[in-house]
Design a protein around this nucleic acid. Sequence first.
DNA 1: GTGATATTCAACCATTTGGTTGACGATTGC
DNA 2: GCAATCGTCAACCAAATGGTTGAATATCAC
Lengths: 108, 108
Amino acid sequence: MTPSLDDIFAALADPTRRAILSMLLEDDMAVTDVAEPFEMSLAAVSKHLVILTKAGLISQEKRGRVKWCKLEPDAMRTASIWMQSFGQFEAINLDAFEEYLQQNELFG
Amino acid sequence: MTPSLDDIFAALADPTRRAILSMLLEDDMAVTDVAEPFEMSLAAVSKHLVILTKAGLISQEKRGRVKWCKLEPDAMRTASIWMQSFGQFEAINLDAFEEYLQQNELFG
DNA sequence: GTGATATTCAACCATTTGGTTGACGATTGC
DNA sequence: GCAATCGTCAACCAAATGGTTGAATATCAC
């Protein structure tokens, strides 16, 4: 059951879920720690994690009573590749790209 | 009102809408012609086009009684740039990146 | 064993989504 | 002028979404 573009894009359409993915970019996290910054119930965050897992964007592994969440970049790459099929990236938006790089301090 | 990532990803999450975008990659099209291959009402397709327009993925221009639909790649670029951070830049257009670096004389 | 911690489950709710149909307002061709 | 064409609007519907709460299930620490 490889995740569909439907599932991937739908998962990415929610700001809470995108925030979770950004958090997991730093490091793997337990469900409770993922939920901590959000002003919603743990159960709600748990549901978001299920959606992200079904989309293939993260994986979850239970060790003891703690369930660890891990980013899985392949799914996002699938979506990215679909976008690239539009073949319009020769005119990539360099301003936005530069802004992105600076915001993320990837340049010294 | 610049479209949000919410709007863009939500718009991309539907297979009908992705198919419409692929069709518009070929050429600009009238609403009736966009709707022709789909087994749903014209009104339903018209709604999809509204969603794509609000997401900034297409634009619509009325000439006479015909409304023409045109692909607008900037919105997809916005989403693509957001996604790049999750793939360690493997999927980015390296030619564009190199051009960017040279234009800004960050290389010798 | 007992109590605290980690997480999900189940039932519920309001709102959104994706579709239908029929009527309607423009615009065109003859 | 009038009929046909293009597209949207309005009302409606079923299903999905995103949230809540309280109970339930594991697991850990002591």
